[in-house]
């Protein structure tokens, strides 16, 4: 593994809120072409780590590198332009705007003019299955549609790395399946690298190339899905000691 194979790297990231260590000395690398899943129990620091990667939160210690360049001090909007885009755990579309505008405003970041941004946004919305909703207000969409809208908005930045925070949470099995297929299609068509926070282990199994397990703010295990989910420490972290012992 050479340095050129790593797109995004976190080195020794610490985040402390008051006395609480939310993220504790985490090293993470996202390798070119892979889909990395981050799993872990609630409160393990997954979203906090995402916020550090996306620039919404400055780490107490440590640094973040994109293609070898230190971006630790770059604010969110600069990172969005530089190639890191994200979705939110609790979806945050611009509720009063049309579906089309929600995505088009992100497409502006690539220097598109308005017409080009609209065209680009319409293409992406078509791809995520919202092609028929362009003129609707985002506030009128259901949760599944909002999640896909955010995905399209994140893609509009033409990112190198796509950070997806529980993009399946709260969806019914049909919608989960649909987004899974969508992610696989995105990987086929573009060269984007995906980092996924996900609770549904089945989804992780089918989609991820590599899994990182966080527990209490630190990396517990990492490896292929099959290896990680057999690991006793992981079972213990997820299900508690009793199950592990029995």
């Amino acid at each position: 593994m050479t340095e050129a194979d790593v797109v995004l790297r976190a080195v020794g990231v610490h985040v402390a809120f008051g006395g609480l260590r939310a993220v504790d000395n985490v090293d993470l690398e996202v390798r070119r072409g892979e889909l990395l899943a981050i799993v872990g129990p609630n409160g393990a620091g997954k979203t906090t780590l995402f916020n550090v990667l996306a620039g919404a939160l400055r780490p107490t210690k440590g640094s973040v590198l994109l293609d070898g360049e230190d971006i630790t001090r770059q604010p969110s909007h600069r990172r969005a332009k530089a190639g890191i885009s994200r979705t939110f755990q609790h979806v945050r579309p611009f509720l009063d705007e049309t579906v089309l505008r929600n995505v088009a405003v992100a497409a502006l970041a690539n220097g598109h003019r308005r017409a080009a941004a609209d065209t680009r946004a319409a293409e992406l919305l078509e791809r995520v299955g919202l092609g028929g909703r362009l003129g609707k207000r985002a506030g009128e969409l259901g949760l599944g549609e909002r999640k896909r809208l955010e995905l399209a908005r994140a893609l509009a930045l033409e990112p190198k790395v796509l950070l997806l925070d529980e993009v399946m949470a709260g969806l019914n099995p049909v919608e989960v399946q649909r987004i899974g297929e969508l992610l696989q299609e995105i990987r086929r068509v573009t060269s984007v690298n995906i980092v996924l926070i996900e609770h549904l282990l089945k989804v992780v199994h089918t989609l991820a190339d590599r899994v990182v397990v966080l527990d209490a703010g630190a990396v517990l295990v990492e490896g292929t899905p099959a290896a990680v989910f057999r690991d006793e420490r992981v079972i213990e972290a997820y299900l508690g000691r009793k199950y592990a012992a029995s």
Binding site: G55, A56, S76, H77, A80, S85, A109, R153, A154, A156
Partner: peptide, 11 residues
């Protein structure tokens, strides 16, 4: 509409 989402959209 949403400052954080706007920042995440490159604004």
């Amino acid at each position: 509409g949403d400052e954080d989402a706007a920042a995440a959209s490159g604004v």
